[in-house]
Design a binder for these strands. Structure first.
Lengths: 218, 218
DNA sequence: GTTAGATGTGAAGGATCTTTCAGTTTTTGG
DNA sequence: CCAAAAACTGAAAGATCCTTCACATCTAAC
């Protein structure tokens, strides 16, 4: 086993017509379903295709191999998460710090609760293929958005909003692997939201108006 | 797909000679190694056997199928965990409550840190095959041991030591899936130990000498 | 209506895997 | 030292699975 050829992981082609978009959606949905009902070991390209109501050939038209499919599913999930955060941030430009903290946490957890029952399966993928870069990329996007809202907050100027945003994002995404193994009940979700909001608010308050030097960078 | 035949998951036979014990150990170790280097999808009975320095046939002498092997690996890991707790409890009969709390947490986390780098892989197995019953059995064993020490504590009588033990065990094993996806550094381990010890001590203190009614059972 | 490009099909090749079994080697007990 | 039991071997059958490819079908634009 010398230098492995490193099979491509990027999609093979993008859909141009509407029905192709529908096909792709069906494939993604089917992948989740198979993962849920059959497990990762028994997840088969043929099985996924059949569940999606397509033929295997169609699947391979969009993904060069099975791993690329799993990667794409993971990517799509993370994009949904960071997308929700970005949208929430965009709608809170110029708001107050308290409101920002609450909105960000709420956006994240609501997006997560929507996918509550599939998240354990996605976590399984993340463990299997090494998805660190994917997760980091998503969290970088979120941090950028959060940094942007923070610097527009009407109350309080932050010495280093980017650093704060990075910390908050880490806390947010850090709880992801910790919790996504279990299916959160609505009650659990509410409680988690409450606790995280409090944490974020106090963290931000301690840095408000230069409360502490936050510029020390190695 | 009607009623599936439900393949057996129990070991095929037990080792009688020393070398057979060594073989089994090698197989277990090899399973972990393959899981670590190749992932769950590429974990193959042949691969495991080769890494263990045995032939496939030997592997199938002890396990009726691949799933039984994975189950056994999981079982062995959990037995180690609950075994560590049981031993710690046995050596603290008649001790003080503070000491008991500290010892139990320490025993659990030390056992876990020993296996730090394999724990993510084991978690992958736990997700794949449904290991809930296994985990519950292990935590029941631990709860029994903890309940026993608590009822012998020199200071303080507990109204319902079994209930307290059950709660503590849940907290302990509950953090297992939450944390075992990451490789704990020694520093993280120390910090976790500190926090859990504090939590346990205060929980126990609040119930000491009938501080609260703890007998409400549904 | 025609045609080029986009999309979809599914049988089949080739690779890999699980599991078995007939036979060999090692250990134990006498 | 010998026979019976235990342990081990590894080739190979049978089952899956990944992936491709030659071909059919559909869509859009002229």
């Amino acid at each position: 086993m010398g230098i492995s050829p490193l099979p491509p992981l990027t999609p093979r082609k993008s859909p141009r017509q509407d029905r192709a978009v529908a096909t792709l959606d069906a494939i993604f949905e089917a992948t989740i379903q198979v993962l849920l009902s059959d497990g990762l070991i028994r997840l088969t390209t043929t099985r996924v295709a059949r569940r999606a109501g397509v033929s295997v050939g169609t699947l391979y038209q969009y993904f060069p191999n099975k791993q690329a499919l799993l990667f794409a599913v993971m990517e799509r999930y993370l994009a949904m998460l960071s997308g929700a955060i970005e949208e929430a941030c965009a709608q809170n430009l110029g708001a107050k710090v308290e409101g920002i903290a609450e909105t960000v946490v709420k956006a994240y957890l609501e997006a997560k609760m929507d996918q509550a029952e599939v998240s354990p399966s996605l976590y399984r993928i993340a463990l299997e293929l090494d998805a660190r870069e994917l997760i980091e990329a998503a969290s970088r996007r979120s941090a950028k958005a959060i940094g942007a809202v923070l610097s527009t907050a009407v109350d309080g100027r932050f010495a280093n909003p980017a650093l704060l945003a990075q910390t908050l994002t880490a806390a947010l995404y850090g709880t992801l692997p910790a919790f996504c193994h279990l299916v959160l009940s609505p009650a659990d979700g509410r409680e988690a939201q409450k606790q995280l909001t409090i944490m974020f608010r106090s963290y931000l308050a301690s840095h408000q108006n230069g409360g502490l030097s936050a510029d020390a960078a190695p």
